[in-house]
Amino acid sequence: MDWTYFFNEVVNNRDALLHGTAITFAVSLIAILTGTVLGIVIGIAVTYGNKPLRWPARLYIDIIRGTPVLVLVLATFYVSAAVGLNFNAFQAGALALTLFCASHVGEILRGALQSLSRGQIEAGRAIGLTFDGIFRYILFPQALRYALPTWITAAVEMVKASTLLSVIGVAELLLTTQQIISNNFLNMQFYLLAGVIYFLIDFAIEQVGRFIGRRLDQPTRRTV
């Protein structure tokens, strides 16, 4: 194998590679952050909402989670254009991943909240907290701890799912890699390189997750 040629090609295509990595990173980050916020709202609605809130939330989770991400990506891209929303490929792709992420986070949070014992709510009520306070100080902090490992898995899934945006022409890391390969035919080398970059992104997410986990597990603050 001619490694010099490969390294030369990496250097020649470094801007494209960096750009592709940045796009993958950006679209994943948008999907994970906004998807998590939206997912928390949906998770709360499906767990504690009254019927008019609970049913749409339940339906949303079931439908979106049951749809292949590729279908979701294509649907968002073409449907948004058909209804006159002027999304470019990046925006449509980010929206699709956000919707997908939200459905997973919603379900993860529901599971975590429902695993908490009923006694926690009652203990909160007994000291005179309203539901807002019970949720904020008692239920949510505990659910976060339970949900964190699954949430990290979901975040990693989002990075992997971002490769599907290549089909609607978002020049993320996979599409960029394919474009480079079509010029120099270094299939194995460049796919391997892309694999390493994806691994590093996912590894970084897991480290961030571990860090948050350690922060959450620290004893509550000491006071004098």
């Binding site: 014992s117 926690q120 009652e122 007994a126 505990q142 701890r145 959450l216």
Partner: peptide
């Protein structure tokens, strides 16, 4: 409560 129900976190 019978089951204490302290806040574990």
């Amino acid at each position: 409560f019978q089951a204490f129900n302290l806040f574990p976190h």
